[in-house]
Design a protein around this nucleic acid. Structure first.
Lengths: 199, 199
DNA sequence: ATCATTTCTTAACCCGGGTTAAGTATTTTA
DNA sequence: TAAAATACTTAACCCGGGTTAAGAAATGAT
C-alpha cells in the first residue's frame, strides 16, 4: 500500500534526502505515511465544496486546478505536472470547504498523505518544517508575481510568455484549457494564434 | 528617534503585546529597533529598481502599491492604510531590485525597521517567528484569493464588492486610482458608475 | 477671492473579445 | 474501419472598454 522507492520520481527523493537532509530512516518513515493512488483522466482529486484533508505529490500525470465563476464558467488557475503537489491549500489550512476543483487531464499516479499523517511526520521529523516554510515563501511569491503578470500583461503577451517558458504545456494540454488559463475564450485564442502566424 | 508609546497605533501594541504575548521588556526592545519617519503625500517609500531593505508599519496615512506595464501605465496592486506594512516583500527576501512602487497618497507616518534590526529582533524574541509565519500564511492566502477574484469577477462586480466591503476607500482614494486597482481606465469607471446609478 | 492644479465626467471613435453556431479536424472507442 | 466523442477553427454580430481630447467640477495655494 505504502509507496516503494522504485517507480518514485527521483525529484521527490532528491528534495527530501538531498535538499532537506532527511536520514535514510526519516525518509523511510516519511514515505510510509503516504499512500499510492491512481486517478483516471477526467476524474477529480478534489472538488469545490469539499474539505481538503490531504496533500498529494503528483508522481506522473497532470491536472488542471480551476474555480467556477457565477455564470458557471470554469476558470483555470494553473496546471500541475509531475513533481507538483495537489490540493486546495486554503481549505487544507482552514479546514473549511474549498473553492477549487482539481481534475486530472491524464491518467495519473499520486502519493497522498493525510493531514494527520503529515502532522505525525512533522513531529517525528522537525526538518520538515523547513520544507513547509520554504514552500510557503515560494508559493506566496509566485502568487504575487502572478498577480503582477495579470495586471501588466495582455492575453497575447501571456500567451507568448507561456510559449517561450513552458512550451511543454502545449504538448499535453488542450488549447481550450490554455485559453481558460489565459482568461480568454477558445475562439479568441484561435484568432490570436492566427494573427501571430501571419507576421 | 525611536518611537514612543504615545502616538502609536493601539493595534500595533495589541498585536505584539496581546496576540503574540511579548513581555514588556521584549516589546520595549522591539520598539527601540524601529525608526519613526514622515513621508509627504506623493513621495515614495519605495521605487521599482530599488532593493527593499526594510519593512515599515503604517501608523497614519495611506499609500498605493503599483507596478508599471511595458507601456508605462501604472497598475495598482493594492492600497495600504493604517495598520498595514509597507514594502516589496519579494525584493526584501530575495535581496534583488524590486518591481513595486509604494507612493503615499496622504502625509504619512511610518515606523521603519531595517532588515538587520529585524533579524536582531528575531534572535532576541523567538516568538517573532510566529508572527512572521502567520503573516506569510495570510499573505499567501490573500494572494490566492485575489487571483481567484481576478479570474472570476468582472470589473463591475469587483467595484461593487469594493463598495460593499471597503467603502472607506472611496472616502480617501481618488477614483482614478480605484480604476487602476480594478484594472480599467477612469472613463470606463465613470461610465460604469453612471450605468449603475441609472438602475 | 482668485488662480492653478488636480480630479472627474462626457463624447466620439475604434477595436478586440465574448457569444453563438456551424463546420472541420483530430482522437478515441468499439 | 466506422462511428462517436472531443477538440479546434471560423464567421457574423454585438457590446464594452481603450483612447483621446475637451470641458466641468472640486480642491488647494497664494
Amino acid at each position: 500500500m505504502a509507496p516503494e522507492l522504485n517507480n518514485l520520481n527521483p525529484k521527490f527523493v532528491e528534495l527530501f534526502r538531498g535538499n532537506f537532509g532527511f536520514t535514510e530512516e526519516e525518509f523511510a518513515l516519511f514515505l510510509s505515511l503516504f499512500q499510492r493512488k491512481y486517478i483516471c483522466k477526467k476524474d477529480y482529486f478534489l472538488k469545490a465544496g469539499e474539505v481538503c484533508k490531504s496533500k498529494a505529490y503528483l508522481n506522473t500525470g497532470c491536472s488542471r486546478n480551476f474555480v467556477l465563476d457565477e455564470k458557471g464558467h470554469e476558470r483555470i488557475l494553473f496546471f500541475a505536472f509531475e513533481d507538483w503537489w495537489l490540493g486546495d491549500f486554503d481549505s487544507y489550512y482552514s479546514g473549511k470547504p474549498g473553492t477549487n476543483y482539481v481534475q486530472m487531464l491524464e491518467d495519473s499516479e499520486v502519493l497522498e498523505i493525510s493531514k494527520e499523517n503529515f502532522q505525525k511526520a512533522e513531529e517525528e521529523i522537525p526538518k520538515l518544517k523547513q520544507w513547509y516554510t520554504s514552500k510557503m515563501l515560494n508559493s506566496a511569491s509566485a502568487s504575487r508575481n502572478r498577480i503582477e503578470e495579470m495586471k501588466t500583461l495582455t492575453a497575447e503577451e501571456r500567451y507568448l510568455n507561456l510559449l517561450a517558458k513552458q512550451p511543454h504545456i502545449f504538448q499535453r494540454i488542450p488549447l481550450q484549457y490554455i485559453a481558460s488559463f489565459l482568461n480568454i475564450e477558445p475562439p479568441s485564442l484561435s484568432r490570436m494564434r492566427n494573427r501571430l502566424t501571419n507576421k
